[in-house]
Design a protein around this nucleic acid. Structure first.
Lengths: 246, 246
DNA sequence: AAGTGGTCTAGACCACGGA
DNA sequence: CCGTGGTCTAGACCACTTA
């Protein structure tokens, strides 16, 4: 019934981390050191460190050691970055997020595919209707921070730069405007959960790091859905902001 | 270098869960059963089940067994529920979230305290200036789903029903309107992380369940900040939605 | 009473990183 | 090379649930 030893050890280390006694980047005592200090088996000390890792407070590296994690988030402005003044003038909608740090993409694929069922419902299309699928990974300072997959109806975007890897100045939304389907309304739905192994690998996530899933629906005038964008964010790298009137 | 046994076992079980072969609520094989099936030590089988629990896919109960988790979220409408038509007419701003299920509160405390530094900055107050702090826990069907702490400047709300546990029809925002400080603009900042032990306990969270932290800033006409509300949501119970124009 | 998960031990071998 | 974390074993005892 009392708190088991491995939790007591974890509690003590957690207190030190949260109080700042152990600062970001500092080394936590090793498994063996903890085992000796507390008179427990190495596996028990290991369990204590496992608790902190699962809470996202520490990060272990084989051969090196276990260190206190840092939290230096990117601010993602849900409302402001999608204001028309952003993409309407050829600026990247991402600039505001990064305090000037460059945001790059890799693993870019653009292809025409039959529309998945759940996307078809949102885009108001027949199942398997052709859609252009834009898939990419975003990086900041060579670290992956987000995965994104956009779906756009082929009847709308076929033949446009949206079907090319480089969509040109202003990006996809500027091109949709060129095509006469300027997005005028957005809806974002978000949830958070622990990553699956493939997500953890693609984002190089540490142990106790959740992902945030955001699905954005873009609508042109008259309520016509023109894009669905499924994003997967490293929760330890992002602060998300939305602003709106009462 | 090859995939260790405990991961192989976890991979196989995960596949069965994600494919629906093992449905929500169904029992996963026990530690001993897995150990026998795969010819490993019980602790190794246990490690495999630990992986799935950390991913939020399963939930273990001592004496009972390990079962596949379910995800039946509450839809939290960030924009619509704060539209003035909601609280302006005496309706609870929460109704839309729940498909008719009643939302209740417990652990309600309302007290006047010196303002914490990070809140003082947001409310444009001197540090330690008096604020009324409203603290409560929200439950759906007797399950805790969210913690919330609101901070309101005493110079604005002193003497009003906002300093009582029951704020009356329309809630805090209707009372702020009565006081001549109707909120006209909101800003919400969100992040996700793993819970600390006290959060996990207050929300009765399972092992692989993150929390979503949302801080809402409410502004009256002229940009006067009138409330800061810090919320802690069970990520496995919430879908969050925001809508806004381009 | 039998079976479940929760915790712990005292060993072992391996892969990796830094000095 | 040595210390680090990562994995595994073959036991053990306990607390809890269900039948």
């Amino acid at each position: 019934m009392p708190t088991p030893p491995y939790r007591q050890i974890a509690d003590e280390l957690r207190r030190q981390i949260l109080s700042g006694e152990l600062g970001a980047g500092e080394k936590v005592p090793s498994e063996n050191a903890l085992a000796l200090q507390h008179g427990v088996a190495p596996e028990t000390a290991r369990a204590a460190l496992g608790v902190l890792a699962a809470e996202g407070l520490t990060e272990a590296r084989r051969g090196s050691g276990t260190r206190v994690r840092d939290f230096k988030p990117i601010l993602r402005r849900g409302t402001k970055r999608l204001a028309q003044s952003g993409w309407g003038e050829g600026r990247s909608i991402w600039e505001a997020d990064l305090d000037g740090r460059p945001l790059t993409t890799d693993r870019v694929t653009v292809e025409e595919l039959p529309c998945p069922a759940h996307i078809a419902r949102a885009l108001d299309l027949e199942a398997d209707a052709p859609v252009w699928v834009r898939d990419r990974r975003y990086l900041v300072e060579d670290q992956p921070v987000m995965l994104a997959t956009s779906y756009l109806p082929a009847v709308i975007v076929a033949g446009s730069p949206i079907t090319e890897p480089d969509t040109g100045p202003g990006g996809t939304y500027a091109r949709l405007a060129d095509l006469g389907h300027k997005p005028v309304h957005f809806r974002e739905v978000a949830r958070a959960r622990m990553p699956l192994p493939d997500e953890a690998e693609a984002l190089a996530l540490g142990k106790g790091t959740p992902v945030v899933l955001i699905v954005r629906y873009a609508y042109a005038a008259g309520g016509l859905p023109v894009e669905v964008n499924e994003m997967t964010l490293d929760a330890s790298r992002y602060l998300m902001e939305w602003e709106f009137p009462a």
